[in-house]
């Protein structure tokens, strides 16, 4: 076997492209979990984002519109999650699972209702390489599709907001000790609602990138566990944007490697290669859980009038 395929520049490019949807989704989840809410519906939200984003992009012939519609749609699901888990204090896990199932059903229903059954699969033009004059220093890094840059910029933005602004400090306080936060006049409910809405929108954008950046078509269950993987990456990245970036790039590398291995090794059944990313995630999970410290109030509904 030719070992140079592991360090192929085009492999690195593909790594970043494949990592972008997962990266956006895990960034959204970081925001949500930092405020003390666990969103297990992330897989369903990504799928809904993929479906709504694809349909809007297909109708409007504009990928930007697609991403925006996807963000709005998943933010609505996030609103339901926030009402149930923040205001009504229902169990975040069960509500999340119910919303996950709901979104999975809704996304393929939407597609079927808008597109119907066709022999020819509708396609959208994916975000191509950014062919305008990028920074010429590293030629391959300067010619990636534009959403990849936006995702990378968002990593920095979320990091700065979370760890270097008073706003971020308050948000994290809501996730660590809401009672103490509120005694300092921080509106815990507003922060939780806000972070769930923004985070869900980011998750939807990540989902929308799957058809708009990677495949160009929508298929049922196309998310293929990336939502759960994003949930994992949040733990792997210790609830920090740059940690999540590292995890997403690792996952993207393995997935990109699986694509190129499928081309290079025709005699290996492709299904075994397709298993690699999932097995890799399980192995990574072994490492990820050692000493992981979740936000202290994660999954604990905040009850303003509770006597401790």
């Amino acid at each position: 076997m030719d070992w140079s395929l592991f360090v192929d520049p085009s492999l690195f490019r593909l790594t970043l492209v494949v990592a972008a949807p997962v990266l956006l989704a895990s960034l959204g989840e970081v925001l949500i979990e930092r405020s003390g809410v666990l969103n297990v519906a992330i897989e369903g939200m990504m799928l809904l984002g993929a479906s709504a984003g694809f349909l809007a992009a297909y109708r409007a012939q504009s990928n930007g519109v697609g991403v925006l519609v996807a963000m709005a749609t998943t933010a609505l699901v996030g609103l339901v999650l926030a009402v149930c888990c923040v205001s009504l204090r229902a169990s975040q896990l069960t509500v999340g699972l119910a919303l996950f199932v709901f979104s999975v059903g809704l996304s393929s229903l939407l597609y079927r209702l808008v597109i119907g059954v066709r022999t020819l699969t509708p396609k959208v033009t994916t975000y191509g390489a950014w062919a305008t004059h990028g920074p010429g220093l590293v030629s391959w890094l300067g010619r990636l599709p534009i959403p990849v840059y936006i995702a990378l910029a968002l990593v920095v933005l979320v990091h700065v907001v979370l760890f270097h602004t008073p706003f971020g400090l308050r948000l994290r306080a809501c996730g660590e000790n809401p009672l103490a936060a509120e005694s300092h006049g921080i509106p815990v409910f507003a922060f939780r609602y806000g972070s769930v809405l923004v985070g869900s929108a980011l998750i939807g954008a990540g989902g929308a990138l799957l058809p708009l950046l990677l495949t160009g078509t929508y298929t049922d269950l196309m998310v293929g566990g990336r939502g759960w993987i994003a949930l994992m990456l949040v733990i792997f990245g210790r609830w920090t944007p740059f940690g999540v970036l590292l995890g997403a790039v690792l996952f993207g590398y393995v997935e990109a490697l699986q694509y190129s291995l499928t081309l290079r090794l025709p005699h290996v059944p492709p299904q075994f290669l397709l298993m690699i990313p999932y097995l890799f995630v399980i192995i990574v999970a072994l490492r990820a859980y050692r000493g992981a410290q979740a936000p202290a109030a994660l999954m604990k509904p905040y009850d303003r009038e509770q006597r401790s």
Binding site: L99, V101, F102, S103, V104, G105, S108, L109, R112
Partner: peptide
């Protein structure tokens, strides 16, 4: 579509 039932159940 088969998965519509998922939405209703959820």
């Amino acid at each position: 579509p088969a998965s519509a039932v998922l939405m209703i159940q959820g």
